[in-house]
Each structure stands twice: as structure tokens, then as C-alpha cells.
Write a protein that binds this DNA or RNA. Sequence first.
DNA 1: CGATCCACTCGACACGGTGTCGACGAATGT
DNA 2: ACATTCGTCGACACCGTGTCGAGTGGATCG
Lengths: 208, 208
Amino acid sequence: MAQRGRRTTRISGDERQEAILVTAETLLGEKSFDDISIDDLARGAGISRPTFYFYFGSKDDVLLALLDRVIGEVERRVGALPRDFEAAPASTWRQSIGAFVEVFAAHRAVSAAAIAGRARNPEVHALWSRSMESWVAYTTEVVVAERARGAAPGGLDARELAVALNLMNERVLTAVFSGESPSLPETDTLDVLAGIWIRSIYGRDLAP
Amino acid sequence: MAQRGRRTTRISGDERQEAILVTAETLLGEKSFDDISIDDLARGAGISRPTFYFYFGSKDDVLLALLDRVIGEVERRVGALPRDFEAAPASTWRQSIGAFVEVFAAHRAVSAAAIAGRARNPEVHALWSRSMESWVAYTTEVVVAERARGAAPGGLDARELAVALNLMNERVLTAVFSGESPSLPETDTLDVLAGIWIRSIYGRDLAP
DNA sequence: CGATCCACTCGACACGGTGTCGACGAATGT
DNA sequence: ACATTCGTCGACACCGTGTCGAGTGGATCG
């Protein structure tokens, strides 16, 4: 459950917690999560190692807090998007995927660390799973609607299609942003992703 | 480069090395790679911890050796496949992807551990990257050929399409075989994957 | 205005895993 | 019988994690 050792009064010290988070995100830009020790985090925030434990239960808890923010941001971005698939399906899909891509890009270090750390930490895994589940649900819903209005063909289970496409996005984005070897140029990523989504949802290309 | 402490003469002791590998794959079926200590591996092979280092330079080297075998198997399987995309494109794609799926399934623990360990270990990363690169090259080549004979439309860069599809397979397979939350039933996996490949390569459904 | 309380801090410790070193046996060839 | 090399391990040093208990200083209250 990872209880944070939070004080009840509203005095300072919150800054320390924030400092740890900032240090973590900065350090993640330089080296991998595994290579960051709790001592690094503590020193970066100007405190000693034991004091770190006053604010977070573990290194993973820091990652969790960071991931929580990133997910919140995607949530907000996607929620604020127009949803007129009937009028302009191609560009609406593109925008939705684009929101994802942008937030991922802005916090690439955190996203990459969280996705990698998912295997090790159950809470990180659960948080990420929950979000994926929500993107999948949204995707499925739209696919079903598109099929209902005759714009998209059947042939593949809507939810299964949605799962595969969302997992593709996750994987492609991590590959792109961590500069892996078989990867895409960052500039083409959105085009390729959106292209595959459109073709596999509608069974054909759509006018942009 | 991870030099293995191999003897030059051909005496026994090779069995020990094999025993370590077997122990590792067995243990991987029970717990995560991180939770397996070198002591576990050594005891499982009936030797002491220091002796382990005679055979392998580190725990990661064991994973590397395991992954090497799995990749070799995929390589062999895919190489032995028919390649008549002109006669029966849909089923030929399906079979290629199927080879992947089967080997992954047969060694799911190793595959999952290797893919997860990629982030931590440069050699594992390099080995996996090299393989991905080879599947991508193969895919690209076929897509280009299909376009050349007028069977598939352009619109997306062939290699970029190939990269995204191969990454999708990797991610979907790890999700399926490690029983993650947004995932697919194992029985539908090949259908969904093949379906998305066909639609995004040919821009339409193909007769099976 | 002293007592007290509580958020906050850290020195020091125990633990567990990794990797290394040096010594010791047991075959093999000379 | 002797040397060399393979294989083996006990013991050690190291490093990162997490905990415990003893402070310290500022706010609040009698």
C-alpha cells in the first residue's frame, strides 16, 4: 500500500517530497532507473538516505508517483479532445493517438522507466494496466460505434483489435523514445501509427 | 564481451554448464529473473556460488545463452517456411507469424525474461535488437515485393510499417504469455495479429 | 514563558546479494 | 613421481537496501 510518511499540518517539507520527485525525473534523463540509488535521490534533494524513507516507502514509490502524474496528464489531454468520428474519422483518431505521443514524448524518461519497471513492481504494473485498460475501453467503444454506423467492417473482435493496437502504440513509442535499434524516426511515428490504426479498423485508407 | 570460463579440452563439466541453463529455465517458470539469485542457480546445478562464475560471467550471461537458443530456434523455423506470397499471401503471412508465436509460446519464460532484461543488459539488448532487425528486414522485403507486383498499396514507408508491426507482435506476445491485464486470449492471438498485418499491408482483407 | 509535542532528521547498524582471491584436490600427460 | 591445468569452494570485501533509536527545532498550550 506504500504509505507516505505525510505530516498532517500544512507546513513545509512538501518541498522535500517535490525535490525528490524532481531529482528523480532529472536523473532518469541521465541514467537508467536501476542505476539510480536511493542515496542519489536523497542527496539530490538535499537530505540523507534515511530521511528519504520519511517521504517515500521505496524507490519504486517515487516512480509510481511520477507515473501517476504522467497518466493524469494523458487522461486530461484525451478527455479534452473532440470526438467527432463521424465527421472526420481519420483526423480524430490521429489526434487521439497524437495526445498520447506528445505526453509520452514530454516525459519519455519517466514513461520508459515505468514501463520497464512494470515487471518488477506490482503497483506500477497495476497502475499502468489500469490506464491501458481505459484506453482500450475507449478504443473499443469507438470501433463498435463505427461499425454500427456502417463505417467500419467486422472480421476482428473489436476489443481484441483495440488491445493489439494499443499495445503496439506502447511498444513503438518506447522504442522510438529510447532510441532502440529497430525503430522509427520520431517525425514519422504518428503517421505510421495512425496509418495502421485506420487500415486495420476501417479495412481501407480514409481521406484525411 | 562476457567471456565464458570454458575449458579447452573436451572433458565433462559441460554438463554443469547445461545444468545451470536447465535450472535457470526451470526457475524462470516459477519466479521472475530478478528473484533468482546466483546461489539458486548454483545450488540447482549442484555447485557452489563461486563455481558458478567458472561457467558464466554473470546471471545475465545465463539469460543471454538461453535467449540465444530461442532465437536460433525461431531462425530455423522461419527459414524452413514456404515463401509463396503470390499464391497464398494471407496464409503465408499467417504461417510466418505463427512460427514466431509457437517458439515464443514454447519458451515463454525465457522470452519474457529476456525482453524485460533487455533494458538492464546491453548484450541481451543487442542480441534481441539484431533479431528484430532481421525479422524487420524480411518483412520489409516481402512488403516491397508485394507492392511491386501490384498486390499491396503504398502510403506507408515499407520499413516503417514493418518495424511497427514487428514491435506489435513482440508486445502482444509478451502480454499474452505473461497473462497481463489488457491482453488477448491465447487462442485468438494469431488471428488478431495476422488480421492486422494483412489489413495494414494490403489495405483490405484478403481471402484466406 | 516554560513544557510539551510532533514533524523531521540522520548516524549507525543488520542484512542480503554480487563478485573476487587464493588455496586445495583430482585427473592428465611426461 | 611430477607438473600442469581443470574444477571446486571457503572466506572476504563491497555495495545498496531498509530499520531503529536518538536527537533537534519550531509551534502550540497551559
